[in-house]
Design a protein around this nucleic acid. Structure first.
Length: 407
DNA sequence: TATGCGTGGAG
DNA sequence: TCTCCAAGCAT
């Protein structure tokens, strides 16, 4: 049956046909040089693309840079990473956040070795089945590493697309529509190997190889555009290669996109952290494998609860054969997680040599703390606890807290 | 579909 | 100081 491709293009895609061309031209002149990005003509290493995409999930390019270099130097390919221990990976990941990514990174490397002979699968579907690879990352790897004709949609592309088409519907409800609109930026698809025409507004873009398309470059062009030009605030529209048919710009309200439903702020939680010294050792433990800071090292802490006072928190201090004298450090350590802010009081104590560690805990020499999988929160706590800051008596603090209750 | 999950930088 | 948010995923 099949209309010709040319007819279809003229009829169904009048305005947008120039966008892919303009995007690519802009990209060829303005692309960022990034450690994981191959130069034109250079071979693309799927392992690097995968590693970078996992690290870049909800994380800035700037933060990822040094971590990517460290990981690549230590584990130059997926086989090396698959042989590494999870603990080594967690230690190397410490500070980057979202630690389930590190656990999935390891699991994914193992799966690639076990199930795919050490080569990353090259289809979106097979990539999607691997740990830590969701819809975005599967599409990104497929497009960037394997030139599959598919469009990953990240936060940058969401912003560019909602502005370009003035998508009034708020996120996350608008996701499906944004995905569809974003895919049009790949341009009309070529005729597939089966001879069928796969262009058309209402048809899914076929995720097949297309040596003539530059799907990965278009996606990266949109990301670079979102990072450099189409920024959340004060977008530099005059420099944008798509400015002449940007619907939001025509309306003058481009900064209001993407629309979002506001999410409620988390409630402040309070607790206590206990920094116990035994000579040059500090008492630590490993957090449960899953959940908040899963599998990471911490000093013992109380529960973290909204409206928990110092007295209740102090009662949860670790127990020793003979009770130590707890000293409360002046001030608190505050930390902001994605879903709640945390305020920890820090208590210190010194125990005698050869004091046994409580169940599930261990002594670590202070000089070796840097080798532990310590999240930044715990680095702050330990720095506070071991610092030269003044201590205040526990009794004095109780009086202060009663007199001066938290808002 | 909604929520849990880190951290640091920009404005 | 405060708010937003950055190449999202798992459940």
């Amino acid at each position: 049956m099949a209309l010709s491709v040319e007819n279809n293009e003229r009829r169904e895609a009048p305005a947008p046909t120039g966008r892919p061309t303009r995007l690519l031209a802009w990209y060829d002149r303005n692309r960022r040089r990034l450690p994981w990005r191959a130069l034109p003509g250079e071979a693309i290493d799927p392992y690097r693309i995968w590693l970078s995409e996992i690290m870049l999930q909800q994380t800035t390019v700037k933060a990822v840079g040094p971590y990517f270099e460290k990981f690549l130097a230590r584990w130059p390919d997926v086989e090396a990473m698959g042989r590494a221990s999870l603990d080594d990976i967690l230690r190397m990941w410490a500070g980057l956040g979202y630690y389930s990514r590190a656990r999935n990174l390891h699991a994914c490397a193992v799966a690639v070795l076990r199930d795919h002979g050490g080569r990353f699968p090259d289809t979106e579907e097979d990539l999607r089945a691997l740990p830590g690879i969701g819809p975005y990352t599967a599409a990104a790897i497929a497009a960037i590493a394997f030139n599959r004709r598919t469009m990953p949609v990240d936060g940058n592309i969401e912003r560019v697309v909602t502005r370009l088409f003035a998508v009034d519907e708020p996120l996350p409800k608008a996701k499906r529509r944004i995905q569809t609109l974003a895919a049009t930026l790949l341009g009309p698809s070529r005729v597939g190997r089966d001879g069928k025409n796969c262009a058309g507004r209402d048809m899914k873009i076929r995720a097949g190889r297309d040596s003539k398309s530059r799907a990965g470059d278009i996606a990266q062009a949109l990301m670079d555009l979102g990072a450099a030009i189409c920024t959340p605030k004060k977008p530099a529209c005059v420099l944008c290669p798509l400015n002449d048919d940007c619907a939001a710009r025509a309306r003058g309200d481009q900064e209001t996109f993407p629309r979002k439903v506001p999410k409620k702020a988390g409630e402040l939680r309070r607790g206590a952290a206990f920094v116990v010294r035994r000579g040059n050792d500090v008492l630590v433990r490993t957090r449960p494998a899953k959940g908040l800071l899963g599998g990471m090292t911490e000093v013992p802490t109380s529960t973290w609860l909204a409206a928990q006072d110092d007295v209740a928190a102090l009662k949860q201090a670790p127990c020793f054969e003979s009770a130590p004298r707890w000293q409360r450090k002046a001030g608190t350590v505050t930390h902001v997680f994605t879903h709640f802010p945390l305020e920890l009081a820090v208590y210190t104590a010194t125990v005698t040599a050869r004091t046994a560690m409580p169940d599930g805990m261990r002594w670590v020499p202070i000089a070796r703390l840097k080798d532990e999988a310590l999240p930044n929160l715990m680095r702050k706590v330990i720095a506070h606890g071991l610092g030269e800051n003044k201590e205040i008596s526990v009794a004095a603090n109780r009086r202060k807290q009663q007199k001066d209750p938290p808002a």
